[in-house]
Design a protein around this nucleic acid. Structure first.
Lengths: 232, 232
DNA sequence: GGCGCTCTTTGACCCGGCGCAAACATGGCC
DNA sequence: GGCCATGTTTGCGCCGGGTCAAAGAGCGCC
């Protein structure tokens, strides 16, 4: 519980530029909590009681529409803050965060946020940059969905996944957590059927390699060309 | 140039909670600049030299894709900050801001931002909330584009426009600036042809009333039902 | 006050990808 | 090691809406 080691959050962007003593102060108020695979860290529309930094594992953040469809907002990797609803002026979480593998996060009570930013002004500035880059991502996605057709959107989605959560292996870059065709469909605004067809076609060309809840990119460069719409 | 009156920015959210003297200090560093209809306040990929608050008029913010397509990110109304690229850690503007009518904005040099947030901590907190609510909007849009078909997306877009930039008139709510079918298409990821067809159909039902660069919503409630997918 | 540019409407055609359905693989669990 | 749940593949038919084309309509400008 108490006494989280500073080294755990060495490279966390949201703490960038803060003095080590400041970071220690912040960590003293945090709890470290385990979230077994499949459990929800928080749920959409639930009161935003806490905010978090992921230490270990991977989360899938998704929104549920009134008619029950899911849309994946993003995947969270270690070192990222999440659940900062309170900081952006919301009282409830706008989405659900679910552990796709056993995960561990640092947890702060949302109520502490105003005091923390008052004491550590750099925190607001850093969080602003984090939220800002998410805004960029979201806009990129809007542009892609407006102007690209499905195959290129899927290519872009995989490239981003590989960049943020890729693990280099002998034969390419593998997504570092279990991910289904359905997940990719929910990231790109299509159906699992279409994703499956696309991946099968790519596999035949040696672009990617699939498997159950597994995607490996064998030829990132060719995939990139495809994503950018180079006429093949 | 100097001596912008405080009353001009009375209700501006980004100044919420700041003391009047603080606001005066901030205003002393700003310039008031006119942007005639059709001119660009800033351009995509240009160095982010300034940030702004719109005093008068309306801006259209759009992204240009490599193949020349435009996607409308949002419309800016008076009282909103924009061009805060620097604050979110970018050195260039991610989009172009264009005056759709003669407009006036307060302009600060981006270089002053770090000093301003250091002096006025509330500024970072307020900006964080502003950027956060834009993130919400962007995610809402992603969800809509993923799960709704065109007609409902257009309905949602018009309702948002009406809410943010609507002017009540006798017969309904009119969008308070010139807006083309093409603009609506670029907000919703469709074509002007499809938007035209939809508006024509709605007009026949008495839902909206069109015109050149003009959209008026005659029956917001019915439009809302349609947007939410109530089976008509 | 008329010319021309921009915006809008409307028609006809066609295709990307969604919906539905069914078979098939894979891995966890008892 | 076999069963079951979950995930994946694949075929087929269809349709929402994009594309191409061309004809109106409104407005600003000279």
């Amino acid at each position: 519980m108490a006494g989280v080691d500073r080294s755990l959050v060495a490279g966390v962007p949201v703490f960038a530029g803060l003095a080590p003593e400041q970071i220690d102060l912040l960590l003293q108020e945090a709890q470290s909590v385990r979230y077994p695979k499949g459990t929800n860290v928080f749920q959409q529309d639930e009161e935003a009681h806490s905010f978090f930094i992921l230490l270990h594992g991977h989360l899938r953040v998704f929104k549920l529409t009134p008619d029950g469809q899911q849309v994946v907002v993003r995947f969270v990797s270690p070192g990222e803050v999440f659940g900062v609803a309170m900081a952006i002026g919301r009282t409830t979480y706008p989405a659900t965060a679910q552990a796709v593998v056993d995960s561990i996060a640092l947890v702060w009570p949302s109520a502490a946020w105003p005091r923390l930013v008052a004491t550590h002004p750099g925190l607001a500035v850093n969080t602003l940059q984090t939220v800002g880059s998410r805004l960029q991502d979201a806009h990129t996605r809007v542009v892609e969905m407006s102007t690209e057709q499905v195959e290129r959107r899927v290519a872009h989605a995989l490239l981003r996944l590989a960049e943020r959560a890729g693990r280099k292996v002998e034969a390419g870059v593998e997504i570092d957590f279990p991910i289904t065709r359905q997940d990719v469909a929910e990231m790109t605004g299509t159906t699992l059927h279409t994703v499956s067809r696309i991946l099968t076609a790519w596999e035949a060309q040696g672009l990617v390699e699939g498997g159950r809840q597994r995607i490996m990119i064998r030829d990132p460069h060719k995939l990139f060309l495809l994503a950018e719409g180079s006429p093949s």
